[in-house]
């Protein structure tokens, strides 16, 4: 396998061919904000937070799905990118019903983290206050669509790691929601193995364990890595 060298924010980096800009940045200890990316599952390039500027390319590229090329010159934190990221986070906050004070994920929420990273203290856009439901028909878990940012991590983790494909996206545009089974109550979906990977994958408090109250949600992210390693490298202990 050959190696590609590139510069990210003026830091030279050498990574294997086929790696993404996001992976290369990680190696160079450069943080790029993400929301839909999750280690261990495929990338979709949907949240647009990881967009970066690459010299001599006239459009912004999502770092999570763009492979590095030789002598690529990447900038991850220009004023323009900062502004767009902040705006994207503002749009996400205005889109759903995100009330941190009463959320299970308060203090342990990637959307909150993203807001802090991009310096978003308020949104310039009016809140949409959509009418969305809560499904607690599952005996152990619940999904509160008010807190969902449609990152589709649950969809991918359930499909690609658990192989159950309980989740998918229904409808389109602003009416999109995460549907369980054939758009049934979650508790009635036979395919669900109650493995809880979607709970761990969810960046916000949308999918949670029942019985947790505000600021109590904890995620076992290591579990995902463990399952992937167990299957691919036969490492069955952690």
């Amino acid at each position: 396998m050959s190696v590609r060298t590139l510069t990210i924010n003026n830091i030279p980096v050498a990574v294997e061919e086929g790696k993404t800009i996001l992976e290369a940045a990680k190696e160079a200890d450069i943080h790029i904000p993400t929301l839909c990316h999750l280690d261990g599952v495929s990338d979709v390039g949907a949240c647009r937070l990881c967009l970066v500027e690459v010299e001599n390319i006239n459009k912004l590229l999502p770092a999570c799905v763009t492979q590095v090329t030789e002598e690529m010159v990447v900038h991850t934190n220009t004023p323009k990118l900062q502004e767009y990221r902040r705006m994207a986070v503002e749009l996400i906050f205005a889109e759903g019903n995100h009330v941190c004070a009463i959320c299970v994920a308060n203090g342990n929420c990637e959307l909150q983290d993203a807001a802090i990273q991009v310096g978003m203290d308020h949104t310039r856009f009016p809140y949409r206050f959509p009418e969305r439901g809560v499904d607690v028909s599952h005996p152990q878990f619940g999904i509160d669509h008010n807190r969902c940012i449609l990152c589709t991590r649950c969809v991918r983790v359930c499909d690609e790691i658990e192989g159950a494909h309980v989740w998918d996206v229904a409808q389109r545009g602003e009416n999109c929601y995460i549907a369980s089974g054939l758009s049934q109550p979650w508790g009635e979906v036979d395919a669900c193995t109650s493995c809880g990977k979607c709970v761990d994958a969810c960046p916000t408090g949308a999918i949670f364990r029942q019985g947790t109250t505000s600021a109590e949600k904890e995620r076992d992210r290591a579990k995902l890595e463990f399952v992937v390693n167990a299957r691919s490298k036969q490492e069955w202990t952690r």
Binding site: V44, A46, A88, L91, E95, P126, Q171, G173, E174, C176
Partner: peptide, 21 residues
């Protein structure tokens, strides 16, 4: 555009709504 956005990416899904409003 608001009605026809697929809803996958944030700027198009919610940006078109805010532009319309």
């Amino acid at each position: 555009c608001r009605e026809e956005s697929c809803g996958k990416c944030v700027p198009c899904r919610t940006g078109t709504v805010q532009l319309y409003e």
